[in-house]
Design a protein around this nucleic acid. Sequence first.
DNA 1: TTAGGGTTAG
Length: 484
Amino acid sequence: MLSYGIWPNKFTYPFVLKACAGIGELKLGQTVHGSVVKLGFDDDSHVLNTMVHMYCCCDGGVEYGRKVFDEMRNWDSVGWSAMIGGYVRWGLSSEAVGLFREMQVVGVEPDEVTMVCLLSACIDLGALELGKWLEAYIERENVPKSAVLWNALIDMFAKCGDVDKALSLFRSMSQRNIVSWTSVIDGMAMHGRGTEAVSLFEEMKKDGVVPDDVSFIGLLTACSHSALVEQGKGYFYSMTKEFGISPKIEHYGCMVDLLCRAGHVQEALDFVQRMPIKPNPVIWRTLINACRAHGELTIGEKITKELIKYEPMHDSNYVMLSNIYAKMFSWEKKTMIREVMAKKGMRKVPGSTMIELYNEIYEFVSGDKSHSEYKIIHQMVDDIGKEIRKAGFVASTSEVLLDIDEEDKEGAVNRHSEKLAIAFALMKTPPGTPIRIVKNLRVCEDCHSATKFISKTYKREILVRDRNRFHRFIDGVCSCKDFW
DNA sequence: TTAGGGTTAG
């Protein structure tokens, strides 16, 4: 364009900036930013809004986006949404919510898109109360409810723990699209309500909505988490036969997960051998975990060693190998792994748990001593430990984190972030109040068992969202039926 | 005349 002697105008730049956003290279974006300034289009709201968006799509660009945002006056809701959405994109959801509060102080009316971004932030934070507040706001202020906003609400309710509300919203929708169906099916899957997920999928087909590859991921996950092995296999083959959808690596991953969870480890290994796509590390890790869980320790060790050769800097590969050695009682090998990791300067991602109480979000990290009530919380954890042991709880220590000294194993699992969060909730809420927490990793065996005892001893319903799914603990029983 | 931010999985 420039070589033809044609100069871009202010209408051109939003397109160029959007293209930069798609590429996501910060340097390229900065070059274009430079040319916007040079040509004097940096006073145009459309250009600047897209600029914020562009920066927020680049790795390491959020700060630059914020700088552009801070330097401009009189932002409209589009600019605020671009910045709020940018925070959410990079997992900075607390910042997103904080910026929304500023937006309200300044008096800019949020619109539909702002709401969709904020609902994503709620999902990330597990903030159901905030999500309910947003829903009420949408109703009160008559924010137009497009299909996208409806779908975002359904997804928020499902992922923040109230899947029945998600379902009733879904039922009250007049125009459901594939995203609405997938969100609600996936919600059922996460809550271990596999049979209902399958019925919804069948209802969707009857309704004339053609399933796509994403909806099959939700459906297969549902089968996997509810041990519907044969149905899952049937649906997997129907993808190609009935709908002409070639399974992607994720679908193969779901199948491996389905077989592994049901304990069919050998069948899963055969399945992987026969797959037409090269298995990815996620699939190998699924197999390795199944090998550990079902006692195929030698095969698990072999696969893990191969995976480490391929992915030498991935921390969880070492953690898995260490867990296999723990199960083999090979303590020297386990120690060796720890030394290898230390030498490479690697550390396991620390477990963290969030809890929303009285409009505040608290985050607990295992071993963190920064909380102002740290001593009282730890005292509470000890008291809970005593109470549940009286009720018959026995601590299991085989899954203890790698970077913890052997002699303090039980002490270490006792400091897992979910125990801290639950103790905090027991201290801060009246008897009988349900407790909802969100964990960044999968819940460990010890915490799962302890939480069952806590729900019974303290007469609390405890809802835990982990990386994979929900666990609802009531009177000593978990909704996952110990199957996760 | 022309332009801006957003939803399902991984």
